[in-house]
Nucleic acid binder design. Structure first.
Length: 924
RNA sequence: GCCGGGAUGGUGGAAUAGGUAGACACGCAAGACUUAAAAUCUUGUGGCCGUAAGGCCGUGCGGGUUCGAUUCCCGCUCCUGGUACCA
């Protein structure tokens, strides 16, 4: 075998790995563990494009590196296989989504295997398999059977809550529950009917059924979560989304809000991602204040973060959706106010969001009383107040809040300053200013004033300090077919769990995947979607779980994917612990990553797992964008003019398949063969070539800029693809895919191969002792690779390999003492060629069982250094000097240098800076 | 609006406890090999002036600190991600 025949080599070793289960990871307490995880993909019909494997390659390199360093590495892969596209396809074609999904997974797996990943395929999970979603349903049941105890600050069983209700009622229980939960005694509880008991418990359960305002997407026929909605449109498909009240299952994630916030501190994640989660959770510390309505027993509760400005309140404002608002309208304002509410309510969420400049509102006619100073203030309805946040009512302080200020200006309401400062430029928050004109909180600063005001509220029983979160409870149902059924049936309108022995509750067959004619979810089409109990048959829940259910705990299942009796063996989840390196896109910052942390904390509370954070370290790879190529057609002809000459003709740009363009030069024959109508195309060339234009766009079929990894592998091999994806630039950066530079890494692999072969292509290494230069070239690369691995700078490691191979080639090195460690060094990046070379070097078995070479500093020690000599900060010459020289000796050498003397023009330098081993700088 | 990230040759990018800007690679140019092309190899390649030696300019823009700034500070411009009447 003379040439570097990557096709044979890669096939051979991929088969070897599979046959020998090289990457199977089993619990081994004698070795340190390393859990390396990729965000698992949704297997779409389009297959993988070159952007998908970027993160997988990075984690694969780290995994292989850790293995060489003696770690027991778990590096699994699986599929997030429930989801909308397969279902949409099913609706169009009638093909069962399970079949489509199966086909897509087969294609993905084949593509992934071609890249030579060190995945432990024996650990594969698929969220749509019933042996997997059995446990997703099981977790749902645990959530249903749990409540969040605020004193214990953890989830506890609902049975223990019932016991406490029986003994003490709910007054003394601090637990996360619905806002409208009423107080009851033990006697009340014991007298309750079964129905009332169940309804009450639903207000406490961590997953519960409640009437909620949801994001309803009519086009998709389903509810969407907040993170699935982008600017009023569905993330998938871009259909309009409206707000609607519906009976829905929710997850009480808000109970975990504070722990989700605190937990971020100890995670090794990038600051932007942590910040996004903090913003999403949106903790605000403030107070509830109750305002009495004048001449009425109605009360208005507002939430504010600035009680210190309470003396500056000049009106209250309610959300148009508020029922209270309608109730407070007086006869003389009725016509105007009701008309306003009607208009405001009918404005879509999107309209309200995009149009924040128009100020609108209406006076209700009612007055409220400021409990601090007894003043009567007007109560308004305004659409800048959101029903979904806080209490849906605000106390307006125009002097110190911009929105209140604009509103007050517009309607001519009073603006009263209560913090020292200038009002010349409108309102100001004045967080550091002295409180004035504010009764007993005057002459205080914000914090003290707030504390004193809250003290007053709590004493009078008209308010209390409160922490408000922006995050809402997560809606957990979708009116779709292709998802996990909820293990719930209904008896007398109340939800009950099915028995654990009946798990998994398998998705039923239906005739069509569409909602029913009367708007019921697709599962309503199933003929026997009922649950049989001793008491009779009851209807099962017809909604399914959202996409994020299965992906919120898959990292635990990987440790023990075939377990039929438990979610995973505790000994296994204990051993593998939390994920040591998680790589994936930052687009999941507020969805998947938050839900996974929530479920992990819940499972931790129940003692099912021992870690309370799933992902210790995370790296977010940047998206690979497409780079489109264009040809320029002369209008009305079949003539195409090269990029540089296009201005001389009347042309229009046309996307051309990037796979028939090399280094922006069009392959004319392939172009003619591309489409029948181009067969007789004519070209106007420049310098004998057709040069294409280019532009960075999203990678998509319609732009003909999708590059398939299979094609790259066919042409250059998997090792080249792996190296090139890493060489492209920093992992976290967004960058367009451009195949232009790929020849460079391909050449590198050939040069690497040639080091182990003589000029007639025969394998030949020498057992002679390597020279100092050879050791130096190798150890520079070892050091660089280890340093880069710590910083995830994969691109610079590839450079250092190139430098190393270039140097060794120049030295004509073929020493075993250099080439053996070199093969190990590059093996995480280019595993196939490394295995082959290792084998040629006479080793049995896989290079992945080798030990990473030990870096020896002594090979890099230099005795001399080439000092840059700067005059006034500009580099003028270089002096090669012994590193043992003292500062004085360096100075002497520098001053006696000819070029330096020329620049000094006989004058003595004003200042001399000498940093040994670094630089000499003379100031004239 | 608010909170992040970024801007370096023709291109991807390298270099930050402040110390030779442009590593490595692509592309381009010239040459070698070849009937020719591809492939491969060699040399050159930030811009301007100069035959050269050499000089001047140069890391988005404008200032500042420093012997010395791509790196630190102040003020902008543009691109990009997130988020938004959140009280």
């Amino acid at each position: 075998m003379a040439e570097y025949t990557f096709k044979d080599i890669e096939k051979k070793w991929q088969a070897y790995w599979e046959e020998n289960q090289t990457f199977q990871a089993n619990v081994n307490p004698d070795k340190p563990k390393f859990y390396s995880l990729d965000m698992f993909p949704y297997p779409s019909g389009a297959g993988l494009h070159v952007g998908h494997p970027l993160g997988y390659i990075a984690s694969d390199i780290v995994s292989r590196f850790k293995k060489l360093k003696g770690f027991n590495v778990l590096h699994p892969m699986g599929y997030d296989s429930f989801g909308l596209p397969a279902e949409q396809y099913a609706i169009q074609t009638g093909q069962h989504p399970a079949i489509t999904t199966e086909q897509n997974i087969a294609r993905y797996t084949e593509q992934l295997k071609n890249i030579g990943f060190a995945f432990d395929w024996s650990k594969e999970v698929r969220t749509s398999n019933s042996d997997y979603y059995k446990w997703t349903q099981w977790i749902f049941m645990q959530l249903f059977n749990s409540y969040y105890d605020l004193d214990a600050d953890k989830a506890l069983s609902i049975d223990s809550l019932i016991e406490r209700f029986e003994k003490e009622g709910n007054a003394s229980i601090k637990a996360a529950c619905d806002e409208d939960t009423e107080k009851f005694t033990a006697a009340d509880w014991n007298a309750y009917s079964e129905k009332i008991k169940q309804e009450t418990l639903l207000k406490y359960r961590l997953t519960f059924l409640a009437e909620t305002t949801v994001n309803w997407c009519a086009a998709l026929g389903t509810v969407l979560s907040n993170d699935e909605v982008k600017e009023g449109f569905s993330e998938r498909g871009g259909h309009p989304v409206e707000r609607k009240k519906m009976m829905q299952w929710s997850m009480r994630i808000t109970a975990y809000a504070d722990r989700l916030l605190q937990g971020l501190e100890k995670l090794d994640w990038s600051e932007p991602i942590k910040e996004m989660q903090r913003n999403w959770i949106g903790k605000s510390i403030g107070a509830d204040v109750v305002f009495q309505v004048k001449d009425s027993d109605q009360k208005i509760k507002v939430f504010t973060t600035r009680v210190d400005t309470i003396y500056g309140v000049t009106y209250l404002a309610l959300a148009p959706e508020s029922e209270l608002a309608a109730a407070l309208i007086t006869e003389d304002q009725r016509e105007k106010a009701e008309a306003y509410i009607e208009v405001a309510k009918n404005r879509s969420e999107r309209e309200r969001m995009s149009d924040v400049k128009t100020i609108s509102g209406a006076f209700t006619g009612s007055y409220a009383i400021n409990p601090f100073n007894g003043e009567e203030i007007q109560v308004w309805v305004a659409d800048y107040v959101l029903a979904g946040y806080g209490t849906g009512a605000v106390m307006a302080v125009p002097a110190h809040d911009e929105r209140d200020y604009n509103f007050a200006k517009h309607f001519g309401l009073e603006i009263r300053q209560v913090i020292e400062g200038s009002m010349e430029e409108g309102s100001f928050p004045g967080k550091g200013g002295l409180i004035i004109n504010s009764g007993f909180i005057s002459n205080l600063y914000m914090k003290d004033a707030m504390n004193k005001a809250i003290e007053f509220l709590e004493e009078k029983g008209i308010g209390k300090g409160k922490i408000q979160y922006r995050m809402r409870d997560a809606i957990f149902t979708r009116q779709r077919y292709w998802g996990e059924p909820l293990p719930v049936y209904f008896k007398e309108g109340l939800p009950y769990l099915i028995e654990e022995k009946d798990l998994p509750l398998v998705l039923p067959e239906v005739d069509k995947y569409l909602p029913t004619e009367d708007g019921e979810p697709p599962l309503a089409r199933a003929s026997d979607w009922n649950y049989k109990t001793a008491e009779g048959e009851f209807p099962l829940e017809r909604s399914t779980m959202p996409g994020w259910a299965g992906s919120s705990w898959y990292f635990f299942r990987y440790t023990d994917p075939k377990n039929e009796t438990e979610l995973a063996d505790k000994a296994k989840t204990d051993y593998w612990g939390s994920v040591d390196l998680y790589i994936g896109g930052s687009e999941h910052a507020t969805g998947h990553l938050l839900y996974s942390r929530f479920w992990t904390k819940f499972l931790y509370d129940l003692g099912i797992v021992t870690v309370d954070e799933p992902f210790q370290k995370m790296i977010n790879q940047g998206m690979i964008q497409g780079r489109s190529n264009f040809v320029y057609r002369v209008k009305g002809t079949n003539q195409f003019v090269s990029y540089g000459l296009r201005d001389q003709y009347d042309t229009f740009a046309m996307h051309v398949d990037v796979n028939i363009v090399y280094n922006d030069q069009l392959n004319l024959d392939k172009f003619k063969a591309w489409r029948p109508d181009l067969a007789d195309a004519e070209f106007i060339l420049e310098d004998g070539k057709y040069i294409c234009g280019s532009e960075v766009e999203k990678m998509s079929k319609s732009k003909y800029n999708v590059v398939n990894p299979d094609d790259i592998i066919e042409r250059y091999g998997a090792d080249t693809l792996r190296l090139y994806e890493m060489f492209l630039g920093p992992l976290e950066q967004f960058k367009p895919w451009n195949t232009n530079g790929i020849d460079g890494v391909y050449k590198f692999l050939r040069k690497l191969w040639n080091l182990y072969h003589n000029s007639s292509g025969e394998f030949q290494v020498s057992d002679a002792e390597p020279s100092k230069e050879e050791y130096k070239a190798l150890h520079k690369a070892i050091k660089k690779m280890e340093d880069d691995m710590a910083n995830f700078s994969f691109n610079t490691s590839v450079s250092s390999f190139m430098i190393c191979v270039n140097e060794l080639t120049a030295l004509k090195s073929n020493k075993r003492g250099i080439l053996e460690p070199l093969a190990i060094l590059v093996s995480p990046y280019a595993p196939h060629i490394a295995e082959e070379l290792w084998n040629l070097l006479g080793h049995e078995g896989s290079i992945t069982d080798a030990t990473f070479p030990i870096f020896d500093e002594s090979h890099l020690v230099e005795s001399a250094f080439e000092y840059p000599v700067m005059i006034n900060g500009k580099m003028r010459t270089k002096l090669s000097l012994d590193l043992s020289l003292s500062k004085d000796q360096i100075q002497e050498a520098a001053l006696s240098d000819e070029i330096v003397m020329k620049w000094l023009e006989g004058k003595a330098p004003k200042k001399i800076i000498i940093v040994p081993g670094k630089i000499v700088n003379l100031v004239v």
